[in-house]
Amino acid sequence: MDFLNTLTDNTELFRKGFLGTLALTGSSALIALVLGTLMAAFRVSPVPVLRWIGTTWVTILRNTPLTLLFFASVFAVPKLGLNQLTYFVLAMATLGFYTSAFVCEVVRSGINTVPIGQAEAARSLGLTFSQTLRTVILPQAGRTVIGPIGSVLIALTKNSAIAGGFNVVELFSTQKTLTENANPLFAVFFWIALGYLLITLVLSGIFRGLENRLAVAR
């Protein structure tokens, strides 16, 4: 009974935490998808400087601990006088930037699966680089990487927990508050785990559905 009481006595905290995780994951996913695709475009572009920016962005972000990034954005960035940003905005940007590096690599691998003939045909029709990429390559690449993008977003959901250690209200911060208020440890862990499982299972379901609908037969 204790088990259920932990949930029913603290519904408000759990609700806030769950919604916090949803909001954080959703908003940073949006940043990651847009920025990641842009960086992938940079990495295959004809301009060397842009390629360099894309490569550097990915290399640095993939080799930096996310906790360190959070630490830097929460403690160091406000020291530069940017102290009007809320913890949520900082966490959203941190997660979005970090994840964009992984989105970039996934999209780039998708670009590599598009048959060479597609790009050659596009070029021989006289399309420019950005037209080739926008109208021919990316639509096809996007369809082949739906599965991997799903994995990236599931990892993002799990990574968003770290934000709870940096003053953002989400499921991990709920776990901390409840555990520190002497609620049964395993009951709290169970309900928090269930919350994350719910999000990741729904995400993987959505992406499996998308994959089936949009898959290209080759």
Partner: peptide, 27 residues
Amino acid sequence: MSATVLFDTPGPKARARSKAYTGITGL
């Protein structure tokens, strides 16, 4: 597919454009 398939070998015009983009990005 390698990146170079996505665009032609740059001619004089493309090279100029590339230089312009490089300048803008650098700035």
